[in-house]
Design a protein around this nucleic acid. Structure first.
Lengths: 182, 182
DNA sequence: GCTCGCCAAACAATCGTTTGTTTTCGACCG
DNA sequence: CGGTCGAAAACAAACGATTGTTTGGCGAGC
């Protein structure tokens, strides 16, 4: 149910997907879906939240791990792109459609987004403090660059390309780290 | 008309914006809008196309100009972010809602997107050929990184921040160039 | 026998678009 | 300058279709 919703929301957008579309995809009447969900928006929240959790789970693990900051940053970017490609639909909905949530659930997601951004910054700050990264590096911009590279993945990645998500992540990380390292 | 549509489409999404919303914003009955447009989708195309043209116009000028590749690349990224922030609504719709166009108009936009991507790659290839950039630089990934940094701008930029779009662009360019230069 | 999943049908509301009619406005002429 | 005419712009109303959601009943499985 949530997975079918992720596919449709990602392909057609939340507002572009009707309960009819969802019912067709599941072989059910659109009214029958309400035996399983409370509302269409609740379904959107489930998809968006699962996307957020996928990203966060890996990032928290990397932040807590014991490694050089540059290794953590590479792992984070690789993990981000692996997550974005492995759960392409949920990631797309998480990044694109979360703004259509009403205020209360949107705040829940916003908190998770903020936390993710904070993790990226913390790792970069670690690197600056340990003199792995340039002392004059602008942490905010470096973090934004990392997030931009990762978050835009959904827009161009298609399964079956010549490079694996892992390799893509490593290439990105190499470029970014080269600009960041002392 | 197009500008009001850009504002609404960017804030609510194409499918989340009704002709009623547009009429309200313009102080007109929703039926009256059809004296000015052929269809809602035609309106979407106008917004998306104007966004595409803003980006392309600057990029073509930079590509044709006479300068070091690293200068061109910086100008392109700065110009990209200036354009994205100056025309924030049109840029958001261009990047987010273009996929809701039906096949024929979408192909027109796709062509412009492809051309823009090609320009970025051409500039990087120039830099590699002139030995300004590392010989082993992966042109595709460097171009994707530049585009990601620029295209994600709409997602976080809000007017009135402490740094001007120009300064933001320069900071990004500095990071990327540092990773790219020989 | 009772719960659960599903259907068929209906709900009011809204969707994008078309219609016929009226109002507004600028250009032209006397 | 005042008057007239045609085109453009706006309105009110309706079109059929679809929106998300609710309801009552029916049949199968624990």
């Amino acid at each position: 149910m949530v997975s079918a919703a992720a596919t449709l929301f990602s392909a057609r957008g939340y507002h572009g997907t009707s309960m009819q579309h969802l019912g067709d995809a599941l072989g059910l009447q659109r009214g029958s879906l309400y035996a399983h969900i409370g509302s269409k928006e609740e379904l959107l929240f489930d998809v968006v939240d699962s996307g957020a959790n996928h990203f966060l789970a890996r990032a928290e693990g990397i932040l807590a791990s014991d490694a050089f900051a540059r290794v953590k940053l590479e792992r984070l970017l690789v993990g981000h792109i692996e997550t974005a490609t492995l759960h392409l639909d949920a990631a797309t909905v998480f990044l694109n459609e979360w703004r259509y949530l009403s205020e209360e659930p949107r705040r829940v997601i916003q908190t998770k987004r903020d936390r993710y951004e904070q993790i990226v910054r913390l790792i970069i700050e670690e690197g600056v403090a340990a003199r792995e990264f340039r002392g004059d590096a602008d942490v905010r911009f470096a973090a934004t660059l990392v997030l931009s590279a990762g978050n835009w993945t959904y827009a161009w990645y298609r399964p079956g390309g010549e490079l694996s998500p892992t390799e893509i992540g490593k290439k990105f990380a190499e470029l970014v780290l080269r600009g960041l390292e002392a």
